Amino acid sequence: MKQTKNIILVASLMSTLVLTGCASNDELIAQQKNQTEQISALESKVGTLESKVNTLETELQSQKDTDSEIYQTVRKLDAEQNELKAQAQKQVDEAVMYYTIKQDDTLYSIAREQGIALEDLLQLNPQIDNPKRLLIGDVINTK
């Protein structure tokens, strides 16, 4: 009887261990399934983020191309502006080279206005016979 009792006790322990092992396996399977679902969700998020990164990289490259085009256009416009400034300055310089005599002008007042010496103004204009008699509308050299 003692042996039967021991056998029943051993069988009972074995079945408890087996059931415990089964429960543990079920829990492990459930955990693995849960972890697999989490991994799938994370992989999906990573895929979404990679897609967003690719989109942002494409947009960034597009912006760089646009910026490069704008920079080249600005450089071209700057060069054109400098050329126009040079042309304008040349026209101003040429315009300043000549002066049209007006009423009440004297060679002294013209020289002072143009920032040159009276003697230099006379040398630039050898056609002036009488410095005291200027004719309105005559054009003289100032440079």
Rank of each mutant, 00 (worst) to 15 (best):
L77V: 07
I29H: 13
R112H: 06
G137H: 04
I140C: 05
Y99W: 04
A79I: 02
V18E: 15
E57S: 15
V92I: 09
S109C: 13
L118G: 00
E119H: 07
E80F: 02
E43R: 08
A86R: 14
E37N: 08
I39N: 06
A23V: 11
K76L: 03
Q32M: 09
I7F: 01
A86T: 15
Q123S: 08
I70K: 09
Y71E: 09
T142K: 11
Q127G: 01
Q87W: 02
L122G: 00
G21F: 12
M97A: 14
L121C: 02
L84V: 12
E83F: 12
D65W: 10
Y99A: 03
S51A: 12
L28K: 10
G47Y: 04
E27G: 05
Q63W: 09
D93P: 14
K76N: 12
P131W: 02
A79L: 09
A41I: 15
G21R: 13
Q35L: 11
K90W: 12
S62Y: 03
N6G: 00
D26G: 10
L42R: 06
L19M: 13
E59V: 12
N125R: 03
K102Y: 06
T4E: 08
D138P: 01
A111W: 01
M1I: 02
A23E: 14
L49P: 09
L124P: 03
V96C: 05
V92C: 06
E119N: 13
S40R: 08
V139Y: 00
L28R: 13
E59I: 14
Q81A: 08
N125E: 01
L84S: 11
G21L: 14
S24Q: 15
E50D: 14
Q114W: 00
K45I: 07
D104H: 04
A79N: 14
L135Y: 12
L122E: 06
Y99E: 09
L107T: 04
L28Y: 10
E50Y: 14
G115F: 05
L17N: 15
E83N: 15
S109A: 11
V46D: 04
V74E: 08
Q81G: 03
V18W: 06
L13P: 05
E37R: 07
G47Q: 07
K2Q: 07
I101T: 06
E50V: 03
I128T: 01
Q38Y: 11
Y71Q: 04
K2N: 09
E80Q: 12
I110R: 00
L135W: 04
A79D: 13
D120V: 06
D93T: 15
S51T: 05
D67A: 10
S62T: 04
T4Y: 07
L77Q: 15
S51R: 01
K132G: 07
E83T: 15
S51H: 09
E80L: 13
L84W: 13
D120M: 04
V10E: 14
M14N: 05
Q38C: 06
K2L: 14
E57I: 11
N6R: 07
E119S: 15
Y108Q: 03
D105I: 00
E27P: 02
I128M: 01
C22E: 10
V18I: 15
L13R: 13
Y108N: 01
Q127E: 10
S15K: 07
S12Q: 14
E37F: 03
K45L: 12
S24P: 00
L121D: 00
G21S: 14
A95L: 13
S12H: 05
Q32K: 12
